[in-house]
Structure formats: structure tokens, C-alpha cells
Amino acid sequence: MTLAEELHFGRTAERLHVTTARISQTIKKLERHIGTPLFDRSSRHVDLTEAGRQLHDDLRPACDQIEAALQKAANAARGVGSVLQVGFLGAAAGQLMVQAAQLFGQRHSGWRAQPRELQIVDGLRRLRAGDVDLLVVSLPHNEPDMVTGPVLFSESRVLGVSCRHPLARRDSVSLEDLAAVKMLQVVGGFPDYWRADRTPDRTPGGHPVEPGPQFETLQEALALIDADEGAFVMGAQVSRFYARPGVVYLPFRDAPPLEWVPTWLVTNTAPQITAFNQAAQDVAARVSSVPRDQRPDAHGG
């Protein structure tokens, strides 16, 4: 299941804390037992075969149920069954989650929500592992084992570039300008639809986009941008929460906004999820109804 998510033997070994050889041996043994290849392997790519894809889809619900049951038992053993773990990525989502947690606690005596900051590379993995019960992510998000709630807030997209890059002298950029930069790459096996949206290999006009160095955290990305090692597409909140002298944030003229939504596992049917989502929606609606020049920094632009 992990290899099907990562499609990379090295990253799978890192996640499972075993050697790459152990992963390869296990997959070969499973393929011999089933009688057909589950993965197409080459020196550059790993892909699921039709049989592998079918096995993954059939096993996913059962794996989710097992993980949810184990997490529920662990929570009960720690006496934290009434504490909802709420993950977020980025400062804007963090401020919204803190306010939603306060409202959630006021409305439901005996329940509590604990906001937890995660990194982009491990958000979905930790949600699947049960480390958090709910996670706020940016669209696109289309994972079959997860439920997606309504949009909580949206923000314009910006391109982060070094102040030394020629594009930094502009007031704005187009998606076609991505051909003029190296696009930083997020480490990890992200879905193709997400990479196509955030780190495309071609512009809308068909011009190639050169890939740049990899990163795991936003601070790593900003350090690479500052050093003029590449650029990255982000939400406009970075200009307020992550200002750096060596980084310029250029608004896009032709890119759709980034929309942020809550997501949780299909198997998690706890009533706290519904109650917290309602609190988050109410906080988001309350903030959006206040004139922009009078708002607190709830959405960061």
C-alpha cells in the first residue's frame, strides 16, 4: 500500500524504516504468491499495473478500517477520545483553526480541539496514520479514502522568486512566465493532479518548465528561493506571514485562486468532525463578512 502511494522504492523504505532491498524482496514475494506483476519497474519510473491498481483499491477500505480501529483504541488508552486533533498547513489556516477550536470548545462541553501544524510533505500521511483527525489542505484534493468539506477561504496565487531574478522587477506574472524559472519540487509521492497544478512541467502554452531542487518545508523553499535556486507557486498569505528581504512575491494575472478545505478519512464518522467543521465554517463566514481593512489576520490576504 505504501509503495502504491509513493511509487518510489527509496521513499517507501524511508517511510517504513526498512531497507530498499527489503521492500523489493517483499513485493517480489507477493507477486509470486498472486501470480502476476503488481508494479511496472524501470530505471526512472515505478507504476502500478492493472492488477496492482485493482489490489490497491480492494485493500484500501480494509486498511482504513484497521488503522481507524487501532487509532481509536490508542486514543481510548491515552484517555484522549474527546480531543479532536486538527492539522493545518500554513499560518492562515492555523489562525482559522485556532479560532474554530475556541468556538468548538465553547459550543460542546467536554469536547476539545487541538490545532497541530504539519508540513506539506507529511500532511496526508499523518492523516491516514491517525495522527490527526482532520486536516485543512488546498485544492486540488481528490483522494478516494478521504472526504472533503466546503471551502473555508481562498487566496490569490503568487510566484515566489529571488529579488535577484529578472522577474523580480515586474509588478505581476503570467503562468507562461513559469518557463523562465526553475520550479522547486516538493519531496514525496504527491498525486499527479496536485503536481500538475502546483509544479507543472509545461506552461498552458506548451513551453517546458525546468524542475528545480527539492524541499520538504516552507522554510527550506524560501531559503532556496532567496538563494535564487528556484521559484514556487504559493498563496498570497506568504507576503504577510513569511516576508523575507531576499524573496519577492509576484501576483499572477491569469491563475485561479487557491481554495482551502477540510478533509478527513471516510472511515472517521465521529460526530466531533461534523461539529468542528460547522465551527470552522462559521468562523470563516464571520471573518469574510468583516470589511477587509477591519479584519484581523485570520486569512492572511
Rank of each mutant, 00 (worst) to 15 (best):
Q185I: 03
V187C: 02
D192F: 09
S154V: 14
A196E: 15
V187H: 15
V181F: 01
M146Y: 04
L134R: 06
A129Y: 10
D197V: 11
R157D: 02
K182S: 10
P208F: 02
A113N: 10
F190W: 11
T148C: 11
Y193R: 08
V161K: 14
R128N: 15
D122P: 01
P115M: 07
V186M: 12
S138I: 14
R170H: 09
W111F: 14
G110S: 03
L118E: 00
A168L: 08
P204W: 03
G206F: 06
P200G: 02
P140T: 06
G130L: 05
V158R: 03
G123H: 14
V147A: 13
P204M: 07
R202T: 14
E117R: 09
D122E: 13
F153Y: 03
V136E: 08
P144K: 14
T148L: 15
P140W: 08
Y193S: 08
R128V: 12
V158I: 13
R195C: 12
S174V: 01
S174T: 10
V137C: 00
L159Q: 01
L127P: 02
A180W: 05
H165Y: 01
V158K: 00
V132N: 04
W194Y: 08
V186N: 06
G188Q: 04
P144C: 15
L135A: 00
